[in-house]
Design a protein around this nucleic acid. Structure first.
Length: 117
RNA sequence: UGAGUAAGACAGGUGAUCGCGGCUGCAGGCGCAUGCCUGCGGGUGAGGAAAGUCCGGGCUUCACAGGGCAGGAUGCCGGAUAACGUCCGGUGGAGGCGACUCCAAGGCCAGUGCAACAGAAAAAUACCGCCCCGCAGCUUUUGCUGCGGUGAAAGACUCGUUCAUGCGAAAUCUUUCGGGUCUCUGCAGAGACUCAGGCAAGGGUGGAAAGGCAGCUUAAGAGACUACCGUCCGUCCGGUAACGGGCGGAGCCAUGUAAACCCCAUCCGAAGCAAGACCAAAACGAAAGCCACAGGCUUGCCCGGCCUGCUUUCAGGUAGGUUGCUUGACGCGGCCGGCGACGGCCGUGCCAGAUAGAUGAUCACCCAACGACAGAACCCGGCUUAUCGUCUUGCUCAUACA
C-alpha cells in the first residue's frame, strides 16, 4: 500500500487499545491514535471467536481490501486498529466496506471532500 | 433399467481491471562492496484432507562399554517397507441371496481376582418339580388329597492305593450330641420307639447354569451306556506358517472375564525447527591505554595517584538478522519382476517457502447450482475425523428382451 504500513507487534496493538479513541458498529470496531509520522499504520485483528482459520483469513482480507481501495481519502499520521466482530464472518465485501467508512466518518479521519460524495 | 458393492479421479472454469508473497530479466538511484530501494515486464503461488496431533521415520542437539529392572506399545500366519499400531496376500470367526464387508483374532487344563441385580445355586447347589417311602383322610380297584421324610464328631471292620505313616470310597456296627413320634408326670424332666431318601430331565433367573441332540436303561433319572455332531489327546498326510483333512483314543475336571492383575513373544534412549548453526546493536563484564577533554577525592596551590569518564581490544551472547527451508524414501511416462503391497532400470520435469504470516475485490459469461469441509509453517509414510457435489471403471442381485 502506498501510504501505509502494518502494525505487527503485540505491544503496538496494546498501545493503540489503551490510548486511542474507539467507535464500533455491527461488524467492526475501530481504534485510532495519532502517531506523529507521515504515514498511516494499520492493524487488523480477528479473534478465534469469529470462526476457523479460513473464515478469519477471509475477513482480514476483506478489511484490508476495503482500506486499500479508500486509502487516499484517509488522513495521514494515524495508527488504526480494526477488530472484526463475530457478525463479520457471514457478510460480503460491500457490508465490510460500508462499515469501515461509517466508522471512519465517526472518527473524522477522512478528508472533507468525501462528505459531498 | 433399477438396487447395491468395491476402487479411483476432480474439488468450479474463462476473460477484464485493481492488489499481494517468493523467483527472475531490464532500466534508474544509493553504496567501496556482498547488496538495498524504485519503476516496467516475465513466470510462479495452499489441501484431499493443508485439520486432529494418534502412530512411524528422516533431520538436529544431548546422552550412551555391556547387561538387568521398571515403564510403555504391539499381539492369528507369511510378506512389503526407512519404519509403523500402516499396507498386501492368506488362515480362522461373524454378517450378507451375492459382489463384498467387519474382527484388540496369543494364553483364564501358570497362578490370583471378579461375576452387581436376579436366581435354590455363579463352581457350588436343590426353590418349584419328577420319583420313592411313611402316616392320616377320602374312595375303597386303579387312585386322589394333606402332612412328614436327619445331620455332626469319634472308634471298629472291609476294599482301593502307598514301601510305610497316610489318603480315598461304600456298606455295616458301637458311643456321644441332635431331630421326629408316643407315653408318664406338676410347665421342668424321664422312659420307649424311630431317623429313607433318590434325581438333576423340565420350569423359572441370568450375559453365562456341568457339552448338544436322539435313543437305551430306570421308580424317576443322569455320558451311567450307545450313534451322530462338538471338545480334548495322540498320530499320519498337505501347507513356509496360521491352519486344514484323515485315522485312532478319552465319556468329557467342568462357565465368562486378560480394553482384570498377570504370563508369554517382539519392539522402544530423551527432547524437538521456538530443534540446531552462524553474524551481532545497546546495556553489563574483563584487560590495556589516555590526561587530549569533563567532574570528584587526596590538598591552601602544583606535580603525582585513585574513582567516574573516554578510546581500543576481548569474552559471553540479549534485541535483531542470516541460515536450517525445500531436489525429495519427489512427480510424470515407459519397460521388466511380483497374485499383490512393492521393487529395479531408463527417460524426463522442478512443482509455495511466508515469518504476524502472501491467493483477495469488482464486473461479465458458462454450468441444474455462485458451491461443502476447510489455509502450508522443517519434511515425508500412514491412521482418524469433517465434507456440497460431479465423473470413470470392475463386479453382484433383481426384472425385461434375445
Amino acid at each position: 500500500m502506498n501510504f501505509s504500513e502494518s502494525l505487527k507487534k503485540n505491544h503496538q496493538f496494546q498501545f493503540v487499545y489503551k490510548n486511542g479513541r474507539s467507535y464500533a458498529n455491527k461488524y467492526l470496531v475501530m481504534y485510532v491514535k495519532e502517531n506523529g509520522a507521515e504515514r498511516n499504520r494499520i492493524g487488523i485483528s480477528v479473534s478465534k471467536k469469529v470462526g476457523n482459520s479460513v473464515v478469519r483469513h477471509r475477513v482480514k482480507r476483506l478489511v484490508r481490501e476495503s482500506y486499500r481501495l479508500h486509502e487516499a481519502v484517509f488522513n495521514s499520521g494515524l495508527d488504526i486498529v480494526i477488530v472484526a466482530r463475530t457478525a463479520a464472518a457471514s457478510v460480503g465485501y460491500e457490508e465490510i466496506e460500508k462499515a469501515l467508512l461509517h466508522l471512519a466518518k465517526l472518527h473524522h479521519v477522512i478528508k472533507v471532500f468525501f462528505y459531498f460524495d
